[in-house]
């Protein structure tokens, strides 16, 4: 649909490569990149004394440290992690095989792909009340929400990735008398793997976001619930601490999946 659906890692690499051409600048890019979060932190430090609504980074980090030392963060962290991992797992286990079918079967593709693509702009979170009425407030509804959110990017990416496997490779496979399973495991999936991984990475990010939004709306436990409780009680250092933790987890998870994706590509 767009050029950015496959994140512009290559263009970044390209730009970096162009810059590295100038030898003296080779260290400059990583150095400049590192200064960005440092600058953000400094701005945060500078803003904090001006307004009561922004606690200092030190206060937020101390609160976060306390969360781990005293243990108040663990129940919420564990609950969110359970919902994300279980829901994401369901999303992969359903989205990947169905996406494979959709990519390989032309009839199924022509019927279902427009239906799925048409709902792209529907915010999945509006289905959360349906899950809440079905399962009640709790981990089950939240896991369902995560699974639905992860399912769509994974099925779409898998279908597109499988479809762009070259016809020549498939012909080669058939001429070597590969059966259906061998075609799938030895040719189609390995060839489509990097593009499928893009969908899985996006699915993971969306899983995490979905869990947090769901918890902000209604949950028994979780980081999102803790954020909204801290907001309601105006415990700002705690609110900033949890938001910081959520960002770090999302960032690290994304980096890990990204490096896996790059390994598959090379």
């Amino acid at each position: 649909m767009t050029v950015t659906s496959d994140p512009p890692a290559e263009t970044a690499a390209l730009a970096a490569g162009q810059l590295e051409g100038r030898r003296e600048r080779r260290w400059a890019l990583p150095a400049a990149r590192i200064t960005v979060p440092i600058a953000a932190l400094l701005i945060w430090f500078a803003i904090a004394p001006i307004t009561d609504l922004v606690p200092s980074p030190a206060a937020a980090l101390a609160e976060l440290w306390q969360g781990f030392a005293d243990g108040w963060i663990y129940p919420g962290l564990a609950s969110t992690a359970t919902a994300v991992l279980a829901g994401f797992g369901i999303g992969v286990l359903t989205g990947f095989p169905l996406g494979y079918l959709l990519g390989r079967n032309r009839i199924a593709n022509r019927i279902f792909e427009p239906l799925i693509a048409g709902t792209f702009a529907v915010p999945r979170i509006i289905l959360y009340p349906v899950l809440l009425t079905l399962f009640g407030v709790g981990l089950l509804a939240e896991t369902g929400m995560v699974a639905i959110s992860a399912f769509f990017p994974i099925i779409m990416a898998t279908s597109a990735a499988v479809r762009q496997v070259s016809e020549n490779l498939l012909k080669l496979g058939r001429s070597l008398r590969a059966n259906r399973r061998q075609l799938a495991t030895k040719i189609v999936i390995p060839d489509a793997a990097p593009a499928i991984m893009v969908g899985i990475r996006i699915g993971f990010s969306i899983s995490f976001i979905a869990a947090i939004i769901a918890e902000l709306f209604a949950a028994k436990e979780g980081l999102g619930l803790m954020i909204s409780e801290a907001y309601a009680a105006l415990e700002l250092p705690r609110m900033y601490a949890i938001v910081l933790l959520v960002m770090v987890i999302a960032f690290v998870g994304n980096i890990l999946l990204w490096s896996l994706e790059r390994r598959l590509r090379s």
Binding site: P7, T51, L53, V54, R201, I202, F204, S205, F208, I209, I212, I213, L216, G224, I227, S228, A230, Y231, L234, L236, M239, Y240, V243, V246, M247, A250, F251, N254
Partner: peptide, 15 residues
């Protein structure tokens, strides 16, 4: 893209 920019919502609500 992958950052839950949405988690800033409570912060912005406070601000």
């Amino acid at each position: 893209y992958s950052m839950p920019a949405l988690v800033f919502y409570p912060i912005l609500l406070a601000l």
